[in-house]
């Protein structure tokens, strides 16, 4: 028996909206500790990793580990039927479920929707993501980072991110010209302005903006985002989900000349 009831169902809707352009189908692994999901994009350049802890759910029960193979497109269609204020419950009684039940309840419990989504069996090639002690960590407003990526992608497909003790510099070079945005440490009490840099070792890495713009669809999940970098490592972009867990995106760097 597996049942997970999320009080703020809108969080689940936002997670699926955040990843639907990146991955087509995913395996959600349910265990006693919660839900986890890991999937790569079709070009094997990016990896998304979701972890939702059982204690972040209103109700959570998972008698034995199960894997739920879902089509993101079909999941999206079902979730469109959930109101932003609904609770969302996932449920199955089978051990090898062929479908997953969804219940959407409004606040007054006066409207209850029930859907059943057919499951897929996906070969799960999961990757080992080593715990990395990143040498450059940037915490900043997710809206601000999203804006920087959007603005720079009009000049080039590739952004170079260079960190130093007191600032991070996003540089682009394209046919029309070049540009850079430098963001400094800023302990402002305004969320949108605050920038925290923890730079043990400066890094200079190059990434495809197309992927960063896809990752930034997760801005609605958290007002802050952290960029985690070490030389010769994928960039890890993390959106923490209050009291529930985190959505992490990994992007392999480009070889820059």
């Amino acid at each position: 028996m597996f049942e997970a009831k999320l009080q703020q169902g809108v969080i689940f809707k936002k997670i699926v909206d955040a990843i639907k352009d990146l991955v087509k189908s995913v395996n959600i692994d349910a265990s006693t500790s919660g839900l986890s999901m890991q999937a790569m994009d079709s070009a094997h350049v990016a990896l998304v990793s979701l972890k939702l802890n059982e204690n972040g759910f209103k109700d959570y029960r998972c008698d034995r580990p199960i894997t739920l193979g879902l089509s993101i497109e079909n999941l999206s269609k079902i979730l469109k039927c959930a109101g932003n204020d609904d609770t969302i419950t996932l449920q199955t009684d089978e051990e090898e479920p062929s479908s997953l039940k969804f219940f959407f309840e409004n606040q007054q419990a006066s409207k209850i929707s029930e859907f059943s989504l057919n499951l897929m069996s996906l070969d799960s090639e999961s990757l080992g993501i080593p715990d990395t002690d990143y040498s450059s960590v940037i915490q900043m407003s997710s809206a601000e980072f999203s804006r920087i990526c959007k603005e720079l992608s009009s000049i080039s497909e590739t952004v170079e991110i260079e960190t130093s003790k007191e600032s991070v510099k996003f540089s682009v070079q394209g046919d029309i010209g070049a540009g850079s945005i430098t963001v400094k440490n800023n302990q402002s009490d305004k969320d949108v302005d605050r920038v925290d840099l923890q730079i043990d070792q400066p890094v200079k890495l190059t990434f495809a903006l197309r992927y960063l713009n896809m990752f930034n669809k997760a801005v609605s999940l958290s007002s802050t985002v952290s960029l985690n970098m070490s030389e010769e490592n994928p960039l890890m972009v993390e959106y923490k989900i209050d009291d529930l867990g985190s959505l992490r995106f990994y992007l392999a760097p480009k070889i820059s000349d």
């Binding site: 094997h44 990757l127 080992g128 392999a252 070889i255």
Partner: peptide
């Protein structure tokens, strides 16, 4: 010219 590396270069398949 830059070229894109594959995520498999960095994370081993379990």
């Amino acid at each position: 010219q830059t070229d894109q590396r594959d995520i498999h270069l960095f994370f081993s398949i379990l």
